[in-house]
Simulated assay, not measured.
Amino acid sequence: MGELTLRQLEYFIAVVDAGSVTAASKKVSVTQATVSMAIAQLESRLGTDLLIRQQSKGVVPTRAGRELSARARHVLAMTAEITQVAATGTSEISGVIEIGCVSSLSPQVVPPLAAHFERHYPQVTFNYREGSAGDLQQALIDGALDMAFVFSRQTLESVRSHDIAEAILKIMLPAGHPLCGRQSISFSEVAQESAILIDLPPSRDRSIEFMRNAGVEPRVRWTSENLATVMALVANGLGYSLRYALPGETSVPGPGVIEIPVADTVPRNAISAVVPRGIHTPRRVDEAIRFLSIHFSEAAQADTDRH
């Protein structure tokens, strides 16, 4: 029957990514017959079908194939790291790091992290994608991402999380609003105004939940997946919004708006770095978590010193 090999895993991942044996064989520079044989050997070794062959439409992985794909990606990444250490005699941080980040966190998370790797670890190829917490964590489980940054209230049980920094819920108001001079604002004080909510799951539902728990029924006028649109509507005096702010952010997130902390009690939330459960994380992932933890800790201390 033969043993499972790294080459078989490499060819299998190539087929899953390319969607066909023909395209995969070109990607890995071997014949179609070689790729087909490797897949057949894998299926025989594991005793299950890994791919569904669709006539004239290429192939898609079965459920077993999806599970193998996720684990195979991590195995190949770890093997590449071991090879690098053996070749250089050091554990120098290198390779490719695939980061996911929820859209509302990206402006605060991605730029400093990308700059850190660019300046201190140029041998690391830093890639990132934005999306919803659910989609990013599924990509993480599938092996398409090395890590993702989401809010702690969005984490799934199937991932392992590391809290990076506390997030503070704030009410966004137009500059010049009568409440702008306050240190904090309760939901009841804006209850009669129009709410313009960020519509990125589960942000909108959570915002409504928090207000209802405080005895306020929000008057939702508009929602948008685009934070810039929400801010522009608020800046034009058309209502208020809610947003989690991170350490180091000012009370003026954009032209014509200001943010003030919510006075009501709301559940704790934080930025969380999530990684797959049961998988050894490469040093570049550990470095990303280490750097951002220090980055936001210093920003939080600066906030404290200012106040």
Rank of each mutant, 00 (worst) to 15 (best):
S106M: 12
Q32G: 05
H74I: 08
R71P: 06
A115M: 10
M78H: 09
Q32R: 10
S29W: 12
R66G: 06
G134L: 13
E118A: 15
V30P: 01
S44W: 01
V75D: 04
Q55D: 09
M78N: 09
P61M: 03
Q41L: 02
A33M: 14
V35S: 00
P111N: 05
M78S: 14
L46H: 01
E130R: 15
L113A: 04
V109I: 15
V30W: 13
T34Y: 02
S103P: 03
A70Q: 04
L68V: 00
M37K: 12
V102I: 12
S36P: 00
T83E: 14
S44K: 11
Y128S: 14
S69G: 14
A70F: 03
C101K: 03
G95M: 08
S36W: 08
V109D: 03
F126T: 07
T62P: 08
V75Y: 02
E67R: 15
S106G: 12
P122A: 09
Q84N: 12
V85I: 14
A64I: 00
T48Q: 09
R53E: 11
S132R: 00
S69K: 10
T48L: 06
H74Y: 12
T79M: 07
V102D: 05
V110K: 09
A40G: 01
E98M: 10
Q84T: 11
A115D: 11
T83F: 08
G58F: 07
P107I: 11
S69Q: 11
P111L: 06
S69I: 03
N127S: 13
M37I: 10
Q108M: 13
D49W: 02
R66P: 02
I97D: 01
V59F: 06
V102Y: 02
V124D: 08
R129M: 12
V35R: 03
V96A: 08
R71T: 07
E43D: 00
Y121N: 06
A86T: 11
S106W: 07
A64L: 05
H116Y: 13
I39E: 06
T34D: 04
G65N: 00
K57N: 12
Q55A: 14
A38W: 01
P122S: 01
G89K: 06
V75T: 13
M78E: 14
V96N: 11
S94W: 09
H120F: 10
A86Q: 09
V59R: 02
H120A: 13
Q32M: 09
T88S: 14
Y128F: 15
E67C: 03
R45S: 14
A86G: 04
T83N: 10
Q54K: 14
Q84A: 15
S29R: 15
E98Q: 13
C101I: 10
I39D: 02
E92N: 06
T88N: 02
R119I: 07
V60L: 13
L50M: 00
S132A: 13
V124I: 12
